[in-house]
Amino acid sequence: MTISHHVGGDLLLAYGAGTLDEATSILVATHLALCPPCRAELALAEVIGGVMMESATTGTAPAESLPDPAIVGAGHDGERHGPAAVLSAQPGSFVLPQPLRDYAGCDAAQLPWRTMGGGVRQVALKTRGSGATARLLSIGAGKRVPEHGHRGAELTLVLAGALYDRDTWYRRGDVDAADSSVVHRPAAGPERDCICLAVTDAPLKFPALIPRLLQPFFGI
């Protein structure tokens, strides 16, 4: 299964530089877990960082008396980013890849979903820093989210099922990007519920009265 809708180069660069806000970084890291070509792009972004660090005017040597280091635990740790052990993994056993499970604390089935009406449920993810907010959405099979516009950017990463938006189908790993010029009503595919991660950097705009009244309660 290959991904056809990727995160933009500007997002990969900002994630590589470490300047992307935390909520959007969750979406990028989750896409990266599912997308080998974008991981190659990230590796390139980190080479850029390394080259800049190497070629910048060399700073002064560290001060003579540095504070005592917090001496870290024994030896080397090998848990993360090891090249081995990937083969033993069983693909597809989790709906939420690791970066999301780190925030959600569990997989999708165990989440405390809150219903928003219309077959749509959500769980907000707690992030630090300012700017964007991240939430997991579960859209019932064949259901649509209420029509809405945007004051900023909205990124939606599909994790399970399929999402139909503006004449395009999005599946696991695909990213649907909308900006302030877009008013849309994405729908879940008919076979199963669609679970996705939505990141917005400004509140949405709901033209219909009921969703607009409910908006403050859902924090969207």
Binding site: G18, E22, S25, I26, V28, A29, T30, L32, A33, L34, C35, P36, R39, E79, R80, H81, G82, P83, A85, V86, L87, A89, Q90, P91, G92, S93, F94, V95, L96, P97, Q98, P99, R101, D102, Y103, T127, R128, G129, G173
Partner: peptide
């Protein structure tokens, strides 16, 4: 310095899609 978490993928995650 920013006191934020850094979300990162984990190649040993069962949901991780390995490089072809």
């Amino acid at each position: 310095i920013r006191r934020e978490r850094r979300p990162e993928f984990d190649p040993q995650d069962p949901a991780f899609r390995p490089d072809p």
